[in-house]
Design a protein around this nucleic acid. Structure first.
Lengths: 353, 353
DNA sequence: ATGAAAGCGCTAACAG
DNA sequence: CTGTTAGCGCTTTCAT
């Protein structure tokens, strides 16, 4: 009947033609059955189904993609799966994509823009139907081409101007976090960022921090860049020992960390140096990853509604892909909430002379 | 020259034919240039390269896959990205795959065997070159067909008999963990597992636990199944309040948790009930995820060499794919080490009458 | 060194 | 209701 007499061993996967031969019909009929197209008699349908079953036929998505000139693969560009925020987002993105019939192809950029470009390049070669950026380090040639070639792009929990954006209001979040510290009586409040966070979100959270500082009559802003668990950090462009920033009379008493990952590692750093959190140092994070909610971590943080971001992100991207959404890129900003936990407390000022 | 006069807007991606026309050569020549094949004069090569650049041509991987009848996509079946162990493994697997020219396609099964089957099915339809299981819930039809159709399969940090295995010695790990508790004077030691862990690893760690218990003259084994953060747990098949197991004169003083995730949530549970870890309860985990190393968590645990697992796993799988490794499935078990931290301590026995 | 031609497995008109 | 046919964009002999 078909090429291989031993259908169970060492066979090359059966094709639609094998099924057609086996069922005694034409390729098209098999195709119609497989695609659940109308206009196939119930009898034929059954016969074809039986043949498919017998042969263990599985449609070759690649051939289908080639002729339809589109895939149902979504590219997902992730900052760093090591950071639970990305891992949790990645999981939700994958789930929503799968629910809508799309498969996810991941690229972990590890914050490296070269890897990001290569990743996008590879996604584009695979002709993904759309790209989800969970982190985006900046415009590049690959990006521009992606847009030119009309691959819909969405920025989820980050931002870029090549496509739709579904994100939180980073400025508002930064303000919320900083206001919380100000309200607790802190005067010297720093902004801490780690290299893993992509630049735009970083800048906007910094912006919110600066706004709040100014509004509170405090200042000047103090910006710390730190790669945990290093001893050194860059403070306002100058290399200093991090511990020096957190001790002494002029010490920083409140830190708004650009994300929970940074906040938790700062807390770890404080523990190591016997600085008490929150007695000596109050810390606010951003994201509200699961870990931050543990009693032992108890990080006060700005919560990102991850589930909502993922859902809206996929919804929007799929609408673009399927042509149900047209027009210029849309930005949808979701409000954030501060979750108060035990990493922040009212500042106990030493008595002044 | 080619179909679209405005190459920057709304164009369908240029094909190899567009490039050929643009460069004034044949498709084959372009193909030869793209694939860096020998036998193309330097002059032609340059002309073709220029045309590619001008048009922004990017080879269509799908067409290539169709004709070569193989992809360079690796399917990765992940248990649950929410668990940092999987997230960290996923990241490393992706990195090693990318380093060898393979792209990763992920399926998050969330411990659900139905989702696992659908995921594998989808991977198979996409004609992935191989499948990496980071979690495996059991044999299924899809699995059997995967093997029949000769898609190489590898089980990393888990096990199955349809392909090669690169994993740790779960029994040894379970023994190590339990022996540590025994050596610290604990008499009533329980084994705790959460539903997310796949069955085979679970069973083997349980086995190691039972072995150690027996060797230490202790017993009978006590097995707790718990879904954090529930109050109830199933203890030796019987539903009980978890807190009751951990309090009272006959209380369990040492727990070997089947993974860090479970261990950390048990610690959280203990904190909530004001049980002191390790004074009232010693906990040993398994995996050594980054979180366990934080001073505030400080979970004693059996470390899985994740980097090594990922590297060996991809190495082996790629060797199978490329035909450099043949013969029956191989199992490679890697030794584990106990990392002692502050979640375990010597048992202070109350004075006996 | 280059080109022509035959598919890879499938879908989608269009005929019958 | 079913079959025929013409590609999708690429690789790969085989000629030239």
């Amino acid at each position: 009947m078909h090429a291989d007499d031993n259908p169970l061993l060492f066979r090359t996967p059966p094709t639609i033609l094998d099924v057609a031969l086996e069922a005694g019909v034409s390729k098209s009929t098999v195709s119609n059955v497989v695609r659940d197209a109308t206009g196939v008699s119930e009898a034929t349908r059954r016969r074809v189904r039986a043949a498919i079953e017998r042969l263990g036929y599985r449609p070759n998505v690649i051939a289908r993609q080639l002729v339809k000139r589109r895939t149902e693969i979504l590219g997902v560009v992730v900052g760093d799966l090591f950071n639970p925020f990305f891992a949790e987002m990645a999981k939700m993105i994958e789930r929503h994509a799968a629910a809508r019939g799309y498969t996810a192809m991941f690229c972990n950029t590890e914050g490296d823009s070269q890897r990001e470009i290569e990743g996008v390049e590879s996604l584009l070669e695979h002709r993904v139907a759309g790209i989800v950026f969970l982190a985006f380090s900046g415009e590049s040639r690959a990006m521009r081409e992606a847009v030119e070639q009309r691959v819909p792009v969405i920025f989820v929990a980050c931002s870029g101007d090549a496509g739709d954006v579904v994100s939180v209001d980073d400025v508002q979040g930064g303000t919320l976090a900083t206001e919380h510290l100000i309200a607790a009586g802190h005067k010297r409040i720093a902004y801490l960022s780690v290299p893993e966070l992509e630049e735009r979100s970083d800048l906007m959270r910094l912006q919110g921090y600066e706004d709040a500082l100014r509004a509170g009559g405090l200042g000047p802003p103090l910006r710390i860049s730190w790669s945990p668990p290093a001893d050194q950090a860059v403070v306002d462009g100058e290399a200093r020992k991090l511990v020096d920033v957190l001790t002494g009379p002029e010490r920083v008493t409140g830190v708004f960390a650009s994300n929970d990952f940074a906040g938790i590692y700062l807390q770890e750093f404080a523990d190591r140096y016997h600085l008490r959190v929150p007695a000596d140092l109050s810390i606010v994070g951003f994201d509200d990853i699961a870990m931050s909610g543990l009693a032992r971590i108890a990080l006060t943080t700005v919560a990102q509604p991850r589930e909502q971001l993922a859902r809206l992100g996929i919804e929007t991207l799929v609408a673009r892909i399927e042509g149900k959404l047209t027009g210029p890129p849309q930005t949808r900003l979701i409000g954030v909430e501060l979750v108060k936990r035990r990493s922040t407390a009212r500042l106990i000022e030493p008595a002044r002379p």
